[in-house]
Simulated assay, not measured.
Amino acid sequence: YAASRQGLDSRITWLQADALKLPFDDASFDLVCCQFGAMFFPDRVAAYREAKRVLKPGGHFLFSVWDRIEENIFADDVTNALARIFPHDPPRFLARTPHGYHCL
């Protein structure tokens, strides 16, 4: 299902779509952009394949993701403080967030 909404710039139309099954023709775009979504794809390979499918030859797939938890000072400090307070069973909920998917 796709729902469109006109933005402030009339040249841009926002669409909600499934990253694993994009509702666009092959080779439709020069650029596919994904901000803080790639780490939530249920099947990353399939989503990347879809991004490639809708890109024109020579097009680019630009995506951003969170870095390692050690690079997020606040989350890392909280995780380490909790590990000191609860050494036998440290809460690791922040370590299970998407910090683990990063690009080098």
Rank of each mutant, 00 (worst) to 15 (best):
F40P: 00
D89Q: 10
F63D: 01
R92N: 13
H60L: 13
Q35K: 11
L22A: 00
Y101M: 11
V54Q: 00
S64N: 06
A46K: 11
A95E: 11
D67R: 05
N72L: 14
W14C: 09
F29H: 01
R5N: 05
C34I: 04
P91E: 15
W14T: 06
L55R: 01
E50D: 11
W14Q: 15
S28P: 03
D30I: 14
F63C: 02
L55V: 06
L8P: 12
W66Q: 02
S10F: 08
C33P: 01
H102K: 11
R49P: 05
P98R: 03
Y1L: 08
S4R: 14
G7E: 05
E71C: 08
Y48P: 00
N72W: 07
R84K: 15
Y1R: 05
G59D: 04
A95K: 04
K52V: 15
R92M: 06
A81R: 12
A47R: 00
I12G: 02
L62S: 03
A95M: 07
R11E: 12
N80Q: 08
I12Y: 11
F40S: 13
F61I: 06
D26Y: 11
R11G: 06
W14A: 10
G37D: 02
F36K: 02
A3K: 10
L55I: 06
D77T: 13
E71R: 15
H60W: 02
C33F: 14
A46V: 10
Y1W: 10
P91I: 11
F74A: 14
P57G: 03
R44K: 12
E70D: 08
L55T: 01
A83K: 06
G58A: 06
G59R: 00
P23Y: 04
A83E: 11
I12F: 12
